[in-house]
Design a protein around this nucleic acid. Structure first.
Ligand SMILES: [Mn+2]
Ligand SMILES: [Mn+2]
Ligand SMILES: [Zn+2]
Ligand SMILES: [Zn+2]
Lengths: 154, 154
DNA sequence: CAACGCGTTGCAACGACTCGCAATAGCCAT
DNA sequence: ATGGCTATTGCGAGTCGTTGCAACGCGTTG
């Protein structure tokens, strides 16, 4: 629509990380299928946390023939490509984040059931402590810490 | 067997935390059942981590009629009483610890699959950081942090 | 445009857990 | 010892996620 783009020779199209997926797949001998297209359309409109079940439900809205195992496998693939990240909620259920948000962990209050994102500076303390003491490189995105929030003490 | 105990009026029998379970249950209007007895016998001989499935299997060895849902419910109860604690492994599966070990979290290396316990001083850094910055009271026992160990970098 | 190879899909079966419900059985009071 | 109250059990059904396998179809080649 914007006519000013028409003339540009090497217009940088403000790429979203999703734009070159088809190529990235092909480059690895993988394929660009309708099922993967559907999932990515769904992921594009997500923000914050989504459970795998919610993603499957959204895919079903767009394509009634959606199969759970296919979505789970596609999510695994996208995670390998670094486009999504999953962790496990307090009950062990999967929760996904769409990148490229800041990588972060989660805090869950067993008192009120609220979930918060761990702020970067707090996350850094955890990452640094384990790096310094054990040489362990933490993947914060897969972390959910439970306990009681300030409002739910005692 | 030891005859020297026979005469003692108020011998303190080096109580294990399991010894007074029947009373603790009764005190709360709860019941002492064969299924709970079986589970506790199994728990007594555990050390380190056990998955719920492993516990169910062990209970079945002692009592072939063991039912999974009953074991899950008994574990919930024992956790409320503070006698066991569970967390979720990297795949979200439940892992139990028998108390009164030091409460601790876990580290999982996605490279080699090894799991370590987080040492008290390292755990303290995490607990203190979240307490200081957010007033959040961490339950370290329910934490599993994944990442890459020193031997599995790059 | 037709043929081929292999990456993917759909399905069915399974494992880990949860929940509602009716039958069972601890525990206490006569 | 008997009876009753109600906590607990066992079961069936359901959810979430994984995996093996045969059929399918994307993408390439001629
Ligand atoms: Mn995981
Ligand atoms: Mn441990
Ligand atoms: Zn709270
Ligand atoms: Zn490792």
């Amino acid at each position: 629509m914007p006519p000013e783009q028409k003339a540009g020779a090497t217009v940088r199209p403000a790429v979203s990380p999703w734009d070159d997926i088809a190529e990235r797949l092909h480059a690895n001998g993988l394929r660009w299928t309708p099922q993967r297209r559907t999932l990515i359309e769904v992921l594009k409109e997500q923000q914050g946390h989504v459970t795998a079940s919610e993603l499957i439900a959204s895919c079903k809205e767009r394509d009634r023939t959606t199969t759970p195992s296919t979505v789970y496998r596609a999510l695994d693939l996208l995670e390998e490509l670094g486009l999504v990240r999953h962790g496990h909620g307090h009950d062990g259920r999967e929760e996904y984040h769409v990148l490229p948000d800041q990588v972060h962990g989660h805090l869950y209050c067993v008192g009120c059931g609220t979930t918060w994102e761990i702020r970067p500076e707090t996350g850094a303390v955890i990452v640094d402590a384990l790096a310094a003491q054990l040489g362990f490189d933490v993947d914060l995105s897969h972390v959910t810490i439970s306990g009681r929030c300030a409002g739910c003490h005692d």
